[in-house]
Design a binder for these strands. Structure first.
Lengths: 347, 347
DNA sequence: GCTGGACGGGAGAGCGCTCTCCGACGGTTA
DNA sequence: TAACCGTCGGAGAGCGCTCTCCCGTCCAGC
């Protein structure tokens, strides 16, 4: 209107149209201090007329807040296969649930997540640089590997960060996690209740604390039920690895009548193999998964599984991070969620 | 070192340490113009010493480039269920593939995607504001619904944007798409080759152009093969909707011996129903899916399906967007990808 | 009538960077 | 030797915003 739209309108433009100073427009926009109602209306009209939107870079420059956070999926890519890690991790329904939970919390607050993958040293440097540059106010970190160096580096750089899952080594950083042992116990109880006496487990990668906890919890619970020996086969949290693990288990222990898989994807793979070998689930073999993700519902029979409230956990992660961003001195805090058993047809 | 780390080092700090001017440091950092090699070394040493990282907000303010783009998943949420849309769309493996493809292109270029969901009018406003603010240089838009108002609004606001899939109404905007009709033809050919004579299809939501094209292409091809009538049941691209559609099809046409499902998720649902009704796949009924996403491999039998090179398409989307960002006057361009048939066990 | 304080608006500095312009310097040409 | 030119560093403006001061106005209180 007042000027050709070669360049977007600025505070200055709005101020000129409204006949007030830049400062006043800023006060109206940000709702700080009292501004006369008449002038407020004047300013708002000018904003509408000009189509003004505050420039974020300029604002960030002075407030030192980006209004964005980094959502980092971290892990080791198979060397040589650059994008394979990204593809794998993004395709996992788990990622979608995390993103959904994070977004649910962040959106109403006008904070936006930047998606980053840290699968190589180079990529980790990028993430760190991004945060140090102030492009994001903090990081939400989901690591798939135990020996991820990123958490330590973030702490060293004093960058606000929250992890999904307890770090392998204790470091002063906030995280949310699940009581994995309690979850595994739920699975064990269910299997024993169903009358299983020859129970095995498909474990997750044993360098991941969560996998260790699920295994420990499961073994302990089974031992308490009078089954001190539980055969295990290690998988990699993928459907294919679950198949392979189940094949091994079946070859060595053909009399198995109950299986606990450390996640649903592996349970799905195990189910396929059991059915291929003519075992009826749950009649011949009872099967319990972990996570309660979409595959659990798509399987036939549908999976009895330990529910991990991923969305809630992700939202809590975001909440913690924003608290750290707002109050830099805040000490690390961890929040542990309780799993529940979702009973369906497989056990 | 030279100052307590209360505030991150700036260009000024580096310049002081190196004993040169701010401009020179900037030139070294950005590699513009010639700078004496000795001075370059001096500056680099100073950068290392101070741990300097350029402040992105300040840079953006002057260059008018954010170095980020918005990755927008757009569609209509079921009213009342705020986060349901986000959860659904993010859980779809399709989203992961898009994100992976986009990231693959963007990462080497130092551009970061901001994840946004546009499921309500409010959310669309946020996306628009975000882009107008200059927080992102452009948008990559994946719409799940045909009547999405966002593309038009983006064009009106002259914001660089690229769509995944052709818009319902022709508007001057770049997009990538698949030759859906050709893909459906591939499926029809396969079904007929397999000896099917009673073929039905589980279509996608018919307000989506891609669904329409797949249906049209399939019908045309079947007609050419001498089967002018093809029963259809409409689904919603989810596994559950595929189940329901298959049930309907089976009730009305119990003699079906071939099914084309417009995506793998629905094919997965259809497979479940077929098996429940005692139909062997592929012996009694041949089944072809569409997408070649992870469910296709997890099914037993594994799905014969039309492969959509989503990752490549997403990368191309990113490439197009960056071109538009770099050259604002560029006219809209569309890139159409060719599907291929992945033959597995289901047909 | 004068003072003090609450209120509301303006002026202006400065956030950290890029980039244009200018000037110094050394080497070539007439 | 003077005029010219190319190379390279510095000075300084200014991107669009926030926020601290400061100042004018109005009214309660003595």
């Amino acid at each position: 209107m007042s000027r050709p739209p070669t360049t977007p309108p600025t505070l200055e433009d709005v101020a000129r149209v409204a006949g007030v100073s830049r400062a006043t427009v800023s006060r109206v926009v940000n709702g700080t201090r009292n501004v006369d109602v008449k002038i407020q209306e004047l300013v708002r009209a000018a904003i509408d007329e000009t189509g003004y939107a505050p420039n974020r870079a300029a604002r960030s420059l002075v407030t030192k807040r980006a209004g964005t956070i980094a959502l980092v999926m971290s892990g080791a890519g198979d060397p040589g296969e650059e994008d394979a890690f990204a593809a794998r991790v993004l395709a996992d329904p788990f990622f979608g649930r995390v993103a959904g939970g994070v977004l649910g919390f962040l959106r109403p607050r006008g904070v936006h997540p930047v998606l980053m993958i840290a699968d190589t040293e180079r990529a980790r440097e990028d993430v760190l640089a991004f945060l140090r540059q102030g492009s994001a106010d903090g990081a939400l970190l989901v690591s798939t590997h135990a020996e991820d160096p990123l958490p330590v580096r973030l702490v060293e750089s004093k960058i606000p960060a929250v992890l999904f899952a307890r770090p392998a080594r204790p470091i002063p950083i906030s995280y949310v996690d699940l009581d994995h042992q309690a979850g595994a116990r739920l699975a064990a109880d269910r299997l024993v209740e169903s009358g299983c006496t020859q129970v095995a487990t498909v474990a997750g990668p044993l360098d991941v604390p969560a996998s260790q906890d699920r295994l420990t919890g499961f073994r302990d619970a089974m031992a308490r039920h009078g089954f001190p020996y539980v055969p295990i086969a290690e998988g990699g949290f993928t459907s294919a690895s679950g198949e392979a693990a189940m094949e091994r288990l079946l070859a060595e222990h053909p009399d198995i009548d109950g299986v606990f898989a450390a996640n649903d994807l592996m349970a799905q793979g195990a189910l396929l193999v059991l059915q291929k070998h003519g075992r009826r689930v749950p009649d011949d073999v009872a099967l319990v998964g972990f996570d309660d993700s979409s595959p659990a519902l798509v399987c036939r029979p549908r999976l009895t599984t330990v529910r991990q409230p991923v969305e809630d956990m992700a939202a809590e992660m975001a909440r913690l991070l924003m608290a750290h961003v707002e109050e830099p001195g805040l000490r690390p805090k961890s929040v542990i969620f309780e799993p529940t058993l979702m009973v369906r047809e497989s056990a």
